[in-house]
Nucleic acid binder design. Structure first.
Lengths: 199, 199
DNA sequence: ATGGTAAGTGACCTCAGGGTAACTAACTGT
DNA sequence: ACAGTTAGTTACCCTGAGGTCACTTACCAT
């Protein structure tokens, strides 16, 4: 079947991006197949190229679409943070809420299979840096308030925190029946349990 | 240049596996190139196929080589654990020490680009399950000792813990000048700082 | 009605990467 | 010396994935 189906470009682009985000998240940049994305979106490959130019172009669009909203929400949540560990739950809440519309989005930011050079790498790095900075400033403040000043320790703590968040999001992906709010409360319970064990 | 170079098979296999582990860790199963591995190992592609049969065969060998030692060490460390959070540092120590000879090994276990079916997937899943079980039993015991009995919470905590460990190993990869012992001490400092903040 | 434009496709090109066939040169024991 | 085995290579095949060309059909303004 050939010829237009009467679907306007903007709408098609949304459909394609939705499918692509999912596919990129599941298989990574390298593993994802343009043909498969086209097939799953119910259109043919050349249409994707007409709209997005290249695989990089599509990925870039997906990345901005996904990371833009997330970062905005995250930087907002940052303002509610204080020195306490418990307040970290706010960050988790922000992430869960921002991710609710398309949970798999998170994987795009930390895809290890994307090329290490070029526009797409720069964009990803830029988003990664912004999230890392949020985590880092929090970690440093946290450690300083406890009398530790090692830059390296702060850097490691920051990495650990981001890995922890990443893993929880991954767990969430495997438990789709859980709502964002349930996840937030779960985090609260866990953090409390860990801290109560104290000293 | 053609013909033997006088290197016995066992030795060559070791060289190849060493390079392959590195390459698989860096680019993932899908992204790694057999040609590149051959080139970096200083031999030609067919020799790899002669020795390992296929890409899957090579990956499998790498996986067993790497995960076997790690799991053994990890299951040993498990015995030193108690209910406290602080004792988790023993697990970290075990991981750092087991990984010292080839740090990038860790990535192999959790490569998301490997095929989801076949012998290699089963092997990976088996190793993942063994590590997950270690983490899970620890998490469950930990939560139960604090009066919480939710299976889901334990599962999430387990995932979070594994993500945290994974991230710290990743951080270590980016800071090659740090020794395993320094990493262990760093973990001790961080855990202490978090717990001291208590309640 | 009709021409221009937007939406859409089948068939192809190109090239990288897994995998193989056929050949060659050095060791090793008799 | 020489035959057999082990270590090693060059040159190739084939599939799949990114990407493009030429073509087709529906919508829309005059």
């Amino acid at each position: 079947m050939v010829g237009t189906k009467g679907v306007p470009r903007a709408e098609r682009e949304e459909q394609i991006v939705a499918v692509a985000v999912d596919e990129f998240a599941a298989s990574g940049y390298a593993g994802a197949s343009m043909s498969l994305i086209a097939q799953r979106a119910g259109i043919s490959k050349p249409l994707i190229y007409q709209y997005f130019g290249s695989k990089d172009g599509l990925y870039l669009t997906c990345l901005h679409h996904v990371a833009g909203a997330l970062l905005e929400r995250l930087e907002l949540a940052q303002l509610q943070e204080d020195d306490s560990v418990a307040s970290r739950v706010h960050t988790m809440q922000a992430i869960f809420e921002a991710l609710e519309p398309q949970r798999s989005a998170w994987q795009l930011l930390y895809d290890t299979t994307m090329p290490m050079t070029g526009e797409i790498a720069e964009a990803a790095r830029s988003y990664q840096d912004r999230t890392a900075e949020l985590a880092a400033s929090g970690s440093e403040r946290f450690l300083r308030s406890r009398g530790q000043r090692s830059k390296l320790d702060a850097s490691a703590l920051s990495a650990a925190w981001m890995g922890l968040v990443s893993a929880l999001v991954g767990w969430w992906l495997g438990h789709p029946e859980e709502s964002a709010e349930q996840m937030t409360q779960r985090c609260y319970r866990l953090i409390t349990a860990i801290l109560d064990s104290g000293a």
